[in-house]
């Protein structure tokens, strides 16, 4: 399960909407054991594409260091799909770097954002619940 504070959920969805018409992306700092996100790091999509994303490597390094300084680690990534469902694409699966991460999709195809979270292990996608928490 991914535990996502409402404040960080809003930060993620806001970044996804701000990124339109391009895909937007970012990272989550949190506790790997509990799956609790503590901080959302909106990042630049250096691919500058409506169909692809690449997290700005420099912002990834900054997020990694910030998370470490807070006693956290990077536990996942989110990105938006502007014209398709909130489900990992074949490219997402091929490039999923870490089997311990949470892969969050924000679909904006129908106006109202749809958020779903997945684990991707050895190319196998499994959906997990997203629990929105007040803190």
């Amino acid at each position: 399960m991914l535990r996502l504070p409402e404040s960080q959920y809003l930060k993620m969805v806001g970044h996804a909407l701000d990124g339109l018409p391009l895909e937007a992306c970012g990272l989550f700092g949190g506790d790997a054991r509990s799956g609790k996100v503590e901080i959302c790091y909106p990042c630049r999509n250096v691919a500058e594409s409506a169909k692809l994303y690449t997290v700005d490597p420099k912002q990834h390094l900054q997020a990694d260091r910030d998370a470490e300084a807070r006693g956290l680690e990077i536990i996942g990534v989110f990105h938006s799909h502007t014209h398709s469902d909130a489900y990992p694409s074949p490219t997402d699966v091929e490039q999923a770097p870490d089997p311990t991460w949470h892969y969050v999709l924000v679909s904006l195809k129908d106006g109202e954002p749809v958020v779903r979270s997945f684990r991707i292990v050895d190319g196998v996608i499994s959906e997990e619940p997203v629990a929105l928490e007040s803190q």
């Binding site: 992306c25 990272l27 691919a47 169909k51 692809l52 994303y53 690449t54 997290v55 490597p57 990834h60 390094l61 990694d64 990534v77 990105h79 990992p88 694409s89 074949p90 490219t91 997402d92 490039q95 999923a96 770097p97 870490d98």
Partner: peptide, 10 residues
């Protein structure tokens, strides 16, 4: 030296 995954997809 820091090594991180390149995070990308579609």
């Amino acid at each position: 030296v820091t090594i991180l995954p390149a995070v990308a997809g579609g």
